[in-house]
């Protein structure tokens, strides 16, 4: 690719995805200034990895960039030493007096589970996605988040525990 076509591509990527990337970062960091930092870091990465990016199908780029943003945001969180969900639910004992009808495994749908996932924090969703969908090891998750491996194990464990609790409240049995 020539320099001028590279520059056109970068500008196009930037203009197309800047707002989306900011919103994804803001969803995790809840701080506009930090979110702007992450968007900047992501674009610097894109600028320096343009050849790789140009091979990604156009309709997949948004998700690809959003992934980069989430990984960078996780790292910023570690530096801020803030994990909004870390201690919030840990010691909460929520007891519901409403009895929930169990759903059999055959009846569970992806949409049921998505409805539960939408109630979780973006950080928990990201941790679970790294572990369950991308099948990252604890070490890889630790490297992405900039934390120790033991800490990554704890984060995965707690996220799965929160998910299990939410699924049980919907009548879905989930052993983790």
């Amino acid at each position: 690719m020539s320099d001028s076509s590279d520059n056109r591509l970068i500008k196009e990527l930037y203009e197309t995805h800047k707002e989306m990337m900011f919103k994804i970062a803001l969803g995790i960091l809840h701080n506009a200034s930090d979110a702007e930092d992450v968007v900047q870091d992501a674009f610097l990465w894109i600028i320096n990895n343009l050849e790789k990016i140009s091979q990604i199908p156009r309709n997949k780029r948004a998700v690809y960039f959003a992934n980069i943003i989430e990984h960078l945001s996780l790292n910023i969180l570690k530096k801020r030493r803030v994990h909004p969900t870390e201690d919030i639910d840990e010691h909460k004992e929520l007891r519901s007096d409403i009895s929930v009808e169990k759903i059999s495994e055959d009846e569970i749908t992806i949409e049921d589970i998505k409805q539960v996932i939408r109630t979780m924090s973006e950080i928990d969703r990201l941790i679970l996605r790294l572990y369950l969908f991308e099948k990252r090891s604890y070490k890889e998750i630790a490297d992405i988040a900039g934390i120790f491996e033991g800490n990554a194990r704890i984060k995965v464990y707690r996220a799965r525990k929160r998910l299990a609790k939410l699924l049980r409240e919907r009548g879905i049995d989930y052993e983790y």
Partner: peptide
């Protein structure tokens, strides 16, 4: 159910990106 959760996580993420 683990596979369903994995798929749900990815679909939810893609929907969120599209929404943004």
């Amino acid at each position: 159910i683990d596979e369903m959760i994995a798929e749900a996580l990815e679909e939810e993420f893609e929907e969120r990106v599209q929404q943004c």
